[in-house]
Design a protein around this nucleic acid. Structure first.
Length: 716
RNA sequence: CGCGGGAUGGAGCAGUUGGUAGCUCGUCGGGCUCAUAACCCGAAGGCCGUAGGUUCGAGUCCUACUCCCGCUACCA
C-alpha cells in the first residue's frame, strides 16, 4: 500500500433544512471521526473537514413557508449542527459553511477556471418558469399528470405511481408547486460538464485505480457497493450535466461570464467545493498551506458519505477536480448504507427519527453510549437497524457488564491490595492467560498478545471496518476479565501474593491500553478513564503509536508505583423507564403525524383553473365494459385491457395492476375517455384512458355507470 | 422496466483462494464472589432465501426465480 504523507478527510456536508438524526451519524460522521481520531493517535498529518450545505431551492421554499429569509433558516441550522457535532464528539478541524464569502469566491474561481479552459458546453434548453413566483422550477417543484399511467400527481422528474422517470416537459397539465399556477416554457442557457468525454478515464480510474500510468488506489480496498454503483452508471453511459441552475439562492455564476444573470452554481459545483473552501479557512486559521492537502500527490483524500452520494463523489466531483487539473482524486470513498429505525426507514418529513440534539438533551451524559450503539450497528456494508431495546441491551450487557466492570474490578483490587499503587512484580511469575487453565503464561508474553490484538484492531480501522474494530476492543476487555477470572486473585492473595502482583499489573496494562484504543470510538469515556488512572489527558498526537512502540519494546504502559485514583463507574445501566419514554415518543410521533405527505398533498392540489363548457365538450367520455384483461410482461403496474364500446373494441393500458388482478376487472363497467390521443406504453398502444377515482391513500375506484348500462353511451 | 447491494441458528452479524458452519446478545445448566446480581465455563438451537446446475465435495462458483433496500442523472 502506498505511503501517504498526509490525509484529508471529508464528511458529507449536511443540508441545512432540518436537524441531524442518528442516520446522519451512522452514515458519515462517526465513521469519519473514528478514522480521524485514530490517525491522529498514530501521529499522522490529518485534517478533518466538514460544513453546512446551505444553498438550493429546498431552503428557499422552507424560508417562504416559514416567512423567514433563507439566511435565517441556514443560520439556525448551521448553529445547531455545529453545536450538535461538538456535543456528540465529532472532532472536525474545521466546520465551515457554504454561505461564507470565502466559499463563494472559491467556487466561483473554480467555475471560472473550467470556463476559461473551455471545459463547459453551453446549451440552450426550455425549462418551466413560474411567472407568479418569477423563477425557473426544479423538476421536483412541478407536478402534473403522468403521461404513462395517468397518475395526476407525478413529479417533474418521476411519477411515483408508476415509477417512470420523466422530464417536466412530458407532464400533462403541469402545475407549479410554488404558486399552483401553470408554468410556462422559457428558453434558458446553461453550462454543461461533458461527463461523456470523461467517461473513459473515469471508468479506468474507478475500476483499476490507474490514471495516466499512475496507480492511485486499489479498487479492492473500495467497498463493493461503491464500485457496483459506479460501474452501473459508467456502463449506462454518462451524459453532459448542467453545472448551473436558474435559482435565486446559491453562489452566483461569476459576473465576468457573459449571460451570468440570474444563474447560480449547481449544487455539485457548490457543495463539494465547500470541502475546499473549508480547508482554505482551516489553513488560514492554522498557518498551513491548503494546497498541500488538495494538490499534492502524497495526500490521501477520503470522502465519508452515505450511499445516496456515491456517484457524485466517485464520478462527478472527480470529473470536476480533474477538469480543473490541479487537484488530486479521492483515494477512497467509504460510503455507508442506511440505518433504519425500529423497522422503518428514517424519515425527516414523517418525523420518524431520533434527533441527535434531542437525544443529547433528554438522555444527558450518554454521548459515548449512543456512539457505541451506532458504531456497533453501523451500516457499513448493508442497511442496518437501530432499536431502543437493542440500545439498552448493548449498553447494559457490553459496556456496563463487560467493559466498565472489568475496569472497576481492576481498579478496586489495586486500591484494596496495593493502596492504589501499581504493583511491582517478578517477570518470572507464571499465571493463567485468557485461554484458560492450560494457558500458562508470563507478563511479557501477555504484553505481546495485547500488542497483537491492538494491531488487529488498528488494521480494522485502516480498512474502514469500524464494527470489526469495536468488536476487537470488546474482545480485549473480555480477555482482561478472563485473566482475572482464571487467576482468582481474591482467593490467592493470601497464599500466593507474588502471582497476584503480576496478574493485577497485566490487568492494569490492559486498562491503560483501553484508554488509548477506546479513544476513537468513545472519546468521553477515554477521558474519564484516563483521569481515573491519574494519567495525563490525551492530545491525540501519536499516543497510539507510542503505545505500540512501548509494547513492542517490552515497556509497560503504566509504571510500577504509579498512584491511581478511586474507581468510578465508567458506564451505568439504562433503566427501562428511559427506553419506554423514547419508544413512547416515537409512537406518538407516528400517531400525531400519520400521513403528512398525503395530508399536504390534498391541501396542495387546488381545483384546476376554470374551463369553458366548450373545453369540456371536447372530451368524449363513453361507457364501456372490460371484456379482456392481462398483465403486461415486465411491468408491475400495467394491465392491458380490451374494452367493448358497443360499436368497437379498444385496447387500453391502465396502471392499476397493483390493486386489481386481471380476473377481478373482467366484466367491469367503466367510463372511458374515448378521444384521448393514443400513446404507447411498454410497446402496447393505449387507445384511451379509464376514469378512476383516487383517495388519499392512493387507492383506486372505478368511476362506473350501473352494471346493466349499455356500452358506448355518452357521459356528460 | 433497467442497474447496484443484500437474504446464514430466536435477534444482530462473520464466513478469506470451494474441503467438518462461527461470533455477540438472548435461553438453559454449572463455577466464582474482587466487581454495577456483574464475571468465567459448558449446552441446546441452522436443509446458509427458493429451484436447478458445475464438482469427489458448494454458504462459497454458474443459471433462473422470490423478497428487502437503494440508484435511475433537476430533492438537496
Amino acid at each position: 500500500m502506498k505511503h501517504y504523507k498526509r490525509y484529508l478527510v471529508t464528511a458529507a456536508l449536511p443540508y441545512a433544512n432540518g436537524p441531524l438524526h442518528i442516520g446522519h451519524l451512522a452514515g458519515a460522521y462517526l465513521s469519519s471521526d473514528i478514522y480521524v481520531r485514530f490517525q491522529r493517535l498514530m501521529n499522522k498529518d490529518i485534517v478533518f473537514i466538514c460544513g453546512s450545505d446551505e444553498h438550493g431551492a429546498a431552503i428557499t421554499i422552507k424560508a417562504l413557508k416559514e416567512g423567514k429569509s433563507p439566511q435565517e433558516i441556514v443560520d439556525t441550522y448551521h448553529a445547531q449542527f455545529k453545536d450538535t457535532f461538538s456535543r456528540i464528539g465529532v472532532s472536525f478541524d474545521m466546520y465551515h459553511r457554504t454561505s461564507e464569502p470565502l466559499h463563494h469566491t472559491t467556487s466561483q474561481e473554480f467555475f471560472t477556471t473550467l470556463y476559461n479552459k473551455g471545459e463547459f458546453e453551453e446549451k440552450e434548453s426550455e425549462q418551466y418558469y413560474d411567472e407568479e413566483a418569477q423563477q425557473f422550477l426544479a423538476d421536483r417543484y412541478i407536478t402534473g399528470t403522468c403521461p404513462k399511467c395517468g397518475h395526476p400527481d407525478a413529479y417533474g422528474d418521476q411519477c411515483e405511481n408508476c415509477g417512470t422517470a420523466l422530464s417536466p416537459t412530458e407532464l400533462i397539465d403541469p402545475v407549479s408547486k410554488l404558486s399552483g399556477k401553470t408554468p410556462v416554457l422559457r428558453r434558458t442557457v446553461h453550462w454543461y460538464l461533458p461527463l461523456d468525454k470523461y467517461e473513459s478515464w473515469l471508468k479506468t480510474w474507478v475500476e483499476t485505480g490507474d490514471l495516466e500510468g499512475e496507480h492511485l488506489h486499489n479498487p479492492e480496498d473500495w467497498k463493493n457497493h461503491v464500485l457496483g454503483q459506479c460501474k452501473s452508471w459508467l456502463d449506462g453511459g454518462l451524459q453532459p450535466r448542467a453545472m448551473t441552475r436558474d435559482l435565486d439562492w446559491g453562489v452566483d455564476v461569476p459576473h465576468q461570464i457573459p449571460g451570468h444573470e440570474g444563474k447560480k452554481l449547481y449544487v455539485w459545483m457548490d457543495a463539494p467545493i465547500g470541502y475546499i473552501s473549508a480547508t482554505k479557512q482551516w489553513a488560514a486559521d492554522n498557518k498551513k498551506n491548503w494546497k498541500k492537502y488538495w494538490q499534492d500527490k502524497d495526500t490521501a483524500l477520503i470522502h465519508f458519505i452515505g450511499k445516496d452520494n456515491i456517484v457524485f463523489h466517485c464520478l462527478i466531483f472527480p470529473a470536476i477536480l480533474r477538469a480543473h487539473g490541479d487537484y488530486i482524486l479521492p483515494m477512497n470513498v467509504p460510503a455507508n448504507q442506511f440505518m433504519n429505525l425500529e423497522g422503518n426507514k428514517i424519515s425527516t418529513s414523517r418525523n420518524w427519527a431520533v434527533w441527535v440534539h434531542e437525544y443529547l438533551d433528554e438522555i444527558p451524559g450518554r454521548e459515548d453510549e449512543l456512539r457505541y450503539v451506532m458504531i456497533k450497528n453501523m451500516p457499513e456494508l448493508k442497511d442496518s437497524e437501530f432499536t431502543w431495546k437493542g440500545y439498552q441491551e448493548a449498553i447494559n450487557t457490553e459496556l456496563v457488564n463487560n467493559l466498565a466492570n472489568f475496569v472497576n474490578r481492576v481498579i478496586t483490587l489495586t486500591n484494596k491490595y496495593y493502596n492504589g499503587k501499581v504493583p511491582a512484580f517478578d517477570e518470572d511469575t507464571q499465571f493463567i492467560g485468557p485461554d484458560g487453565p492450560m494457558d500458562e503464561t508470563f507478563h511479557d508474553s501477555e504484553t505481546v498478545r495485547l500488542y497483537d490484538d491492538i494491531d488487529v484492531l488498528s488494521q480494522y480501522i485502516r480498512d474502514f471496518d469500524f464494527r470489526g474494530g469495536l468488536k476487537t476492543l470488546m474482545e480485549i476487555s473480555t480477555k482482561g476479565n478472563q485473566i482475572l477470572q482464571f487467576n482468582e486473585p481474591w482467593k490467592t492473595i493470601k497464599e500466593d501474593p507474588e502471582t497476584v502482583k503480576a496478574v493485577i499489573n497485566i490487568c492494569l496494562q490492559y486498562v491503560a491500553a483501553i484508554t488509548v484504543i477506546s479513544r476513537p470510538f468513545m472519546p468521553f469515556m477515554s477521558d474519564k478513564l484516563r483521569a481515573m488512572l491519574n494519567m495525563k489527558p490525551f492530545a491525540e498526537k501519536g499516543e497510539w503509536l507510542k503505545m505500540m512502540d512501548d509494547l513492542s519494546e517490552g515497556k509497560v504502559l503504566i509504571k510500577k508505583n504509579h498512584q491511581i485514583g478511586e474507581p468510578l463507574h465508567l458506564f451505568t445501566r439504562i433503566e427501562d423507564q428511559v427506553i419506554d419514554n423514547q419508544i413512547q415518543k416515537l409512537a406518538s410521533a407516528k400517531n400525531s403525524n400519520p400521513q403528512p405527505e398525503i395530508v399536504s398533498k390534498t391541501e396542495r392540489i387546488p381545483v384546476k383553473e376554470l374551463i369553458t363548457f366548450e373545453d369540456f365538450a371536447k372530451i368524449d367520455i363513453r361507457t364501456a365494459t372490460i371484456i379482456h384483461a392481462e398483465r403486461i410482461e415486465k411491468a408491475d403496474k400495467l394491465l392491458k385491457l380490451t374494452l367493448d364500446l358497443g360499436f368497437e373494441q379498444r385496447t387500453v393500458v391502465s396502471g392499476i395492476a397493483e390493486q386489481y388482478k386481471p380476473e377481478d376487472v373482467i366484466g367491469k363497467k367503466v367510463s372511458l375517455i374515448a378521444n384521448l390521443a393514443p400513446r404507447k406504453m411498454r410497446g402496447v398502444e393505449s387507445q384511451g384512458m379509464i376514469l378512476m377515482a383516487e383517495n388519499d391513500q392512493g387507492q383506486l375506484s372505478f368511476v362506473s355507470p350501473g352494471q346493466d348500462w349499455q356500452n358506448g353511451q355518452i357521459v356528460k
